[in-house]
Design a binder for these strands. Sequence first.
DNA 1: CGTAATCTTAAGCAAACATTAAGTATAGAA
DNA 2: TTCTATACTTAATGTTTGCTTAAGATTACG
Lengths: 221, 221
Amino acid sequence: MHILIVEDELGIVQFLEQGLREEGYKITTANDGSKAFELTQNHKFDLILLDWMIPKINGLDLCKAIRIKDQKTPIIFLTAKDTVQETIEGLKAGANDYIKKPFSFEELVERVKIHFRNRGGSETLSLGTIKIDLSKHIVLKNDEEIALTQREFELLTYLIQNKGKVCTRNQILKDVWDINFEYDTGVIDVFMNAIRKKLKLKIEEDYIKTIRSVGYIANDL
Amino acid sequence: MHILIVEDELGIVQFLEQGLREEGYKITTANDGSKAFELTQNHKFDLILLDWMIPKINGLDLCKAIRIKDQKTPIIFLTAKDTVQETIEGLKAGANDYIKKPFSFEELVERVKIHFRNRGGSETLSLGTIKIDLSKHIVLKNDEEIALTQREFELLTYLIQNKGKVCTRNQILKDVWDINFEYDTGVIDVFMNAIRKKLKLKIEEDYIKTIRSVGYIANDL
DNA sequence: CGTAATCTTAAGCAAACATTAAGTATAGAA
DNA sequence: TTCTATACTTAATGTTTGCTTAAGATTACG
């Protein structure tokens, strides 16, 4: 689980970074708004902790900017601004939670956990007769286990988590491979091919469709 | 969207019920813990607002009890208990959010909205009986799927996005084909033809009109 | 009724995708 | 650490799809 911390006060950054690392999260930090925006456009984070008062772009505008392209990633405001009006503004900008300074680290951790808890809810995903158990890290088709490699697993999981929506090649490269705008070598095709082959999808089980010149889409039938 | 309010103070119940009704939510209320538990086992709610101090079963235990069977439905605590320790307890019990009394109704509404925000939300366009689902990348006419190629899809989308405005051939070449001022080979005509044919537009469904020597226009009738 | 614009059709061609195989990196065992 | 097995990436080839062009047919409008 990869968390982005956006905060300019070095003391707080170190406090949060160390604490969350110990909780087992992967951490990236940004000390101003524009750097943070840059990062969000080129990488996928599972959660963003956002201070309100930061240089270059303030937290509120940054939140709005991120939400233009990405409505999904949870954003938690972390701030000394504590009037009702400001809280509401933050939430309206697309934040998912709002923690007022000073806060206890324990409360922060619990609020962070909430957003990972509901992710997939019961830790299982499904697509037609295919089931994925995220905690056990296994894939079943008709209750028979299918052995997938790490990347294959991630790609399939990604498609199913975005069930019903077209995933473009660029999105997939960014979110699954963490690669941006490089010359497309055709990696995705190779992996799609492997997944389809291993799942032995019949014609009537066309769960994963190719959208020519756009990307791929997963759908129950 | 169906919200369950669990609260024993009549004044607060009425205040919340009325306010949330005005926001367009369907409301059910329970004035004690066991009644609330009963309701959650027999009905599906989209969100639960939960007071901490309620008769029979307290809010914390109720929350835990609900979470045994249902990990999904968002639960928001609504309480006067405002120490950090208690907040954490609530969150650990499976709550998704925690609002301290006294709270502003506006903040409550925003926090409620957060939990409905990410549901589905596929982008759609329409033209008469034609619907385009952009995230699924499909075109429906009278709820029947019409298979279009990529360029056909782009052209139709473009026309509908500019519904009511005449699109000149040059504009279309520029915006859909990314071609500027080249000798017109008649590509557009070919694609208009394909689209009309695939959509099987009858005479009375003349959604896409030709404006002679100018371009094309899309219009609901 | 003639001309210019648009519609329709079909064939060649290019781009996108599927598939396979070979090269490169990585992780785990000895 | 080095070796080996496994997975990942790239590149090459084959296949399919659909884009483009151009030419003939039809329609709209003076």
